Amino acid sequence: MSIRRTIAAGTAAIISVGALTACGAYDDAQDGAIDENAPIRIGTTDSQKEAWQVFEDKAKEEGIELDIVDFSDYNTPNDALDQGQLDVNLFQHLKFLAAYNAGSDADLTPVGSTEVIPLALFWKDHDSLDGIEGQSVAIPNDSTNQGRAINVLKQAGLVELKGESLLDPAPSDIDTAASKVSVTPVDAAQSSAVYGEGKPAIINNSFLERAGIDPNSSIYADDPSKPEAEPYINVFVTKAANKDDERIAKLVEIWHSDEVQAANDRDSKGTSVSVDRPADELQEILDRLVEDQKNADNK
């Protein structure tokens, strides 16, 4: 299995890595259109997963060559796409994309959905919520996951909020007197270390794998089938000018093939939930989230 890979490890790499700027997908095209004769440059943070290997092989069978650009962080793939150094990326959910577009005044556009990955609570050597009262739970402190983590604890009956139906609550929105646990915001990458110390923690799937934690060992997870999960639908994203590109549409179709889905199920150990929503619905959700983000930023 031959896999083309370009590694970009940080913000500086967006500008300095020659492979990103040497590819011809934008160099000779007008108005940022994707050159149909060049490989599609797709950015991700997960290229090491089996699903991506199967995805690339299936794309090649359909006559689409991929140049997969792997990033070690979540901040640079959107910059690379916005700057024209990628054609499409696949690493983020709609809420993360909304925060980027609102903050950067960008027009990055969802063109297909992939899955919702439940966010879950883990507690080493425990298989239930029994005994968790009085504990401090580590939650990711980034703007796109902190509110979701607090809502996970709310769904589990562990915290009460001062207001109802808050999509993006902050620790200050928790009614501490009425709650069974407290929260300690930490960098998402440190949540697995907190877990290793024997403390309960909400951990993103990416860090579970790196720490060798079985995602099925969670003691509670949110429900991807509920409307509250819509902001966390993972999506293929491109620039608005390329949202109707036929090859990108084909990539979305390939992702939902039986072979890729089976590999993705193995990667997630059965925890990810496939989502196949049309692009116009994804855009409607994104528009709503961007508006909410801008309103929150203006308060």
Results as ranks from 00 to 15, higher is better:
103 G>C: 04
260 V>L: 07
299 K>T: 11
284 E>T: 12
30 Q>P: 07
266 R>V: 02
115 E>I: 03
30 Q>T: 08
154 K>A: 14
256 H>Q: 10
219 I>L: 05
229 A>V: 05
122 F>P: 15
173 D>P: 13
64 I>W: 01
165 S>K: 15
127 D>R: 13
15 I>T: 10
172 S>E: 15
199 K>T: 07
105 D>A: 10
284 E>L: 10
218 S>D: 12
194 V>A: 06
138 A>R: 01
250 K>M: 10
281 E>Y: 05
298 N>D: 14
237 V>W: 00
113 S>W: 10
272 S>Y: 03
50 E>G: 07
122 F>H: 14
285 I>C: 08
294 K>T: 11
216 N>R: 15
68 I>F: 02
20 L>I: 06
126 H>W: 10
118 P>A: 10
148 R>T: 04
195 Y>P: 10
265 D>M: 09
69 V>P: 04
247 R>V: 00
63 G>P: 09
128 S>R: 11
16 S>V: 05
37 N>Q: 13
103 G>P: 04
73 D>W: 00
76 T>R: 01
167 L>S: 05
284 E>W: 04
195 Y>A: 07
173 D>S: 14
204 N>K: 13
250 K>D: 07
254 I>M: 00
151 N>Y: 01
265 D>S: 12
65 E>Y: 09
288 R>S: 12
219 I>K: 03
27 D>Q: 13
143 S>A: 04
232 Y>V: 04
114 T>D: 02
56 E>Y: 03
100 Y>D: 07
21 T>V: 07
186 V>C: 09
221 A>S: 15
245 D>V: 10
109 T>G: 03
266 R>C: 00
113 S>N: 14
15 I>S: 09
297 D>Q: 12
170 A>D: 09
283 Q>M: 06
243 K>H: 15
74 Y>M: 06
240 A>V: 04
114 T>F: 02
102 A>I: 08
89 N>Q: 12
173 D>W: 07
168 D>Q: 10
229 A>W: 02
280 D>N: 14
181 V>C: 11
26 Y>E: 11
290 V>P: 08
222 D>F: 13
76 T>N: 10
123 W>P: 09
284 E>R: 11
31 D>K: 13
168 D>T: 09
144 T>K: 01
253 E>P: 05
100 Y>L: 07
220 Y>V: 08
109 T>M: 03
244 D>L: 04
213 I>K: 06
261 Q>R: 05
203 I>G: 05
90 L>S: 14
210 R>T: 13
148 R>E: 05
83 Q>M: 14
171 P>Q: 01
223 D>K: 04
165 S>V: 11
33 A>V: 05
233 I>P: 01
199 K>G: 04
31 D>S: 14
240 A>D: 12
217 S>E: 12
221 A>N: 09
189 A>F: 04
3 I>T: 14
183 V>A: 03
269 K>I: 02
214 D>Y: 06
48 Q>P: 07
203 I>V: 14
160 E>M: 06
153 L>Y: 11
48 Q>Y: 09
5 R>W: 11
164 E>M: 02
4 R>D: 08
73 D>K: 01
163 G>N: 14
222 D>M: 13
259 E>F: 00
122 F>V: 13
86 L>W: 01
41 R>Q: 15
12 A>K: 11
96 F>P: 00
83 Q>T: 05
3 I>Y: 13
267 D>K: 02
227 P>T: 10
288 R>G: 13
79 D>Q: 01
265 D>Q: 12
154 K>H: 12
6 T>W: 01
